[in-house]
Amino acid sequence: MMDLQIASQISSFLAALVLLTAFGMLVQKRVYGLIHLFAWQGLFLSLNTAVVGFVANKHHLYISSVLTLSLKVVLLPYILHVLINRLKIRKEVETVVNIPMTMMIGIALVIFSYHLTAPIRQLSTLITRSTLAVALATVMLGLLMMITRRHAVTQIIGFLALENGLFFAATSATYGMPLVVELGVALDVLIAAFIFGIFFFHIHTTFDSLDVEQMAKLKEEN
């Protein structure tokens, strides 16, 4: 019983770290640092999944933990590394508009997601119920990141962070989705990453930049 209690404390601690990395990504300016943060977030997520698997005694969660580890901590960051090395945007520093303001919006989103999940908290009996709010907040912060950034690579990282949040939500709300679904999602994410990579090359060769503002040129003249 004591073990369970400690495990659930560790789980909530890891949830806090996931939230922290989500905020870190929101304010990080360097692309390189962003990828590192993303990898860290994946690591915390996978650890958390393993811990939840231990607490809930669901063994398939161990598999999805390993899956997360290999995919989000190793493979995707590696792909992104290769990508930015090829595109020679390693040192690029992105100007993020008004970081303190973004932080405040982020805090508001956390409070909002807490408010949204409050009814579920009361209904649910799972040990992980309190991390649901964090999971939802991670999703929203990923979306916020996609909105506030202009660089295509940071947008894809935002998207991946959003996916992390969804995965986290599934873990904390229902002790994870069925394994088949998770495998499918993992495959989807992987394929999405490849497709994005291909698109980046095309965007880069067309506009000579990965600033998504450039896409505004594509609209019809009026």
Binding site: S12, L20, I99, P100, M103, I107, V110, S130, T131
Partner: peptide, 23 residues
């Protein structure tokens, strides 16, 4: 420094939120 101290404020606020959300 706005960003530096803003991060400090963010961390402190997250601490307070975590107190309510995660406990």
């Amino acid at each position: 420094l706005t960003e530096f101290l803003g991060s400090a404020f963010l961390l402190a606020t997250l601490g307070m939120l975590a107190y309510y959300i995660l406990d």
